[in-house]
């Protein structure tokens, strides 16, 4: 993108063509992704694949399925952490858990769960609240590669110091190391943490609602979508939530710029926890 004859208008056309080709040939629909961050990830892939133009990348992606797999991993952002943004989990613990106690059975959908760090975090939180036996967590992602990692529940041992700090700030009062076994460079999380989790593939752009949930978590997923797709997904989440169900978004996301704002009330100001009220 630093070549002297760089033409941004032409590049946007090339990106549209690439995404059209990927959608038609592979069925992965990135056509309604937010352009600014998508461009960056396409540029990164171009560097890695040594493609000088988006068109050159398109040829590789369409003709080499292995290249498409790498492209898919590069396009979906899979940066996450356990108890990411601890204030959110603290608010969930103090304000949402009491609501959930009134339900005999709790269905939770974690949409866009990536490699699973936040799903295990929620499992730990619900276990400590004494609610885990009553829960079923559906953890979905469009990307099967990250889902298989999520199913393993093995995370880098070097991350545990950071995660322990997050856990404590999220209101955890146990010894965090009770939840995993250290082996070489890995922290292997206790298999029973997975007992109530169902991992499955689901694409927010193309798949519909598959159940009614008491809690829907979709954190830092929709920031990669443009307004059109964002509105589509907000409708999907809204339709998947039972009345008085709880919606959890990422720290810098809000309902303010969406058409569903009036259907929710904020449970805790600033922590992006909303309750469906109509």
């Amino acid at each position: 993108m630093n070549v002297p004859d760089y033409n941004p208008e032409l590049e946007e056309i090339e990106i549209q063509l690439l995404l059209e080709g990927v959608a038609q040939h592979y069925g992965y629909d990135f056509r309604n992704y937010a352009l600014a961050s998508l461009k960056r990830r396409i540029w990164n892939t171009m560097r890695a694949e040594q493609a000088k133009t988006v068109s050159a990348l398109q040829e590789k992606v369409l003709h080499q399925p292995a290249c498409m797999e790498r492209f898919l991993l590069a396009l979906t952002v899979n940066v996450t952490a356990m108890f990411r943004d601890p204030g959110f989990y603290l608010a969930f613990r103090t304000k949402v858990v009491p609501l959930l106690r009134t339900y005999p059975f709790i269905r939770i959908w974690h949409a866009g769960c990536s490699t699973g760090e936040e799903v295990y975090s929620m499992a730990i939180l619900l276990y400590e609240a004494g609610l885990y036996d009553r829960c079923r967590i559906y953890a979905t992602d469009m990307n099967t590669a990250v889902l298989s990692k999520a199913k393993e529940g093995i995370f880098p041992l070097v991350k545990m110091q950071e995660y322990t700090g997050n856990y404590l700030r999220a209101g955890g009062d146990q010894s965090f190391s009770n939840y995993y076994t250290a082996a070489y460079e890995h922290a292997i999380f206790r298999p029973w943490l997975r007992d109530r989790i169902t991992f499955s593939q689901h694409n927010l752009a193309t798949d519909g609602s598959f159940n009614e949930f008491n809690v829907v978590l979709c954190r830092n997923v929709m920031i990669y979508f443009n307004k059109t797709l964002q509105e589509h997904v907000h409708r999907l989440l809204y339709e998947s939530l039972s009345m008085f169900g709880v919606l959890g978004l990422g720290h810098a996301e809000s309902l303010k710029f969406t058409p569903h704002e009036q259907h929710y009330t904020e449970i805790v100001s600033g922590e992006r926890l909303y309750r469906r009220v109509s």
């Binding site: 937010a34 940066v79 943004d85 920031i223 990422g250 720290h251």
Partner: peptide, 20 residues
Amino acid sequence: APADYHLLVERGSFALSTEG
């Protein structure tokens, strides 16, 4: 820019990212 997010600009609005 909020903590722990990249701040990006589209024409007329902001976009965020949690990429590395």
